[in-house]
Design a protein around this nucleic acid. Structure first.
Lengths: 114, 114
DNA sequence: CAAGTATGCAACCAATCGGTTGCATATGTC
DNA sequence: GACATATGCAACCGATTGGTTGCATACTTG
């Protein structure tokens, strides 16, 4: 089965895991302690996140440390880029509208096209 | 059922719909023409997107125009913010490492922590 | 080597997902 | 009013999801 970053972050537990290991690598057991689901359930989430390359693992003895692959987060950022452009221009336009309105009487104010 | 933006964008068809209506509002029929699924399936996706407030609708006669609520995209951007901070500092650190390496002999070069 | 610990994997299960088809409803046009 | 068009809703269906429990494997330590 083919999964992508967007499916990886769709689940709230997985987003919590991402947030948890963002600053420092952690073992599955340590991660599982933060949730009230079973260790195996967390392990499943880790496997999905690893499949999507959102996290990477490093074996250290019998422990496995999982850490965030921040670059994968950038992929989402790149996808957002196109919409960021839209909301930025939208706010510029809003600023212009507000600027124009300043010079008019309140009665002339029009509802912006939005 | 409670859904959020992350579930809304998890499905590739829904991301395609978002991209499609980003620049101009469209009717369900017009949207459905761009996909090889049924009109009803697209309608379901639209309902989910509307539930999550990723899109809004405007009735115009017997047609309904769906348009993107760009602000909802910003929510994702805000969530990304914490990770953006990480990858930015990471690249600054990498720059520092590269800077230090310039002053050393190649044999002394170490593989960066990541 | 034996015991304990860390982890992954398989089998199972209820709930949800994304799709289908059929039908109801509302608006526009003749 | 009759008919076409635009849309949503309900019922159904197979696949996937997120969880469980039980077991296998591998490393550590005594």
């Amino acid at each position: 089965m083919k999964r992508d970053v967007f499916q990886a972050i769709a689940d709230p537990t997985r987003r919590a895991i991402i947030a948890l290991i963002a600053m420092q690598a952690m073992t599955p057991n340590a991660i599982a302690e933060h949730f009230d689901t079973s260790r195996q359930a967390v392990s499943k989430h880790l496997r999905i996140l690893a499949e999507c390359e959102v996290i990477s693992q490093e074996q250290r003895g019998r422990e496995i440390y999982y850490q965030l692959e921040v670059d994968k987060m950038r992929e989402i950022d790149e996808w957002l880029e196109q919409y960021r452009r839209i909301w930025e221009t939208r706010y510029e336009q809003l600023d212009e509208v507000l600027e124009v309105m300043k010079m008019r009487k309140p009665a002339e104010m029009q509802k912006p096209a939005r």
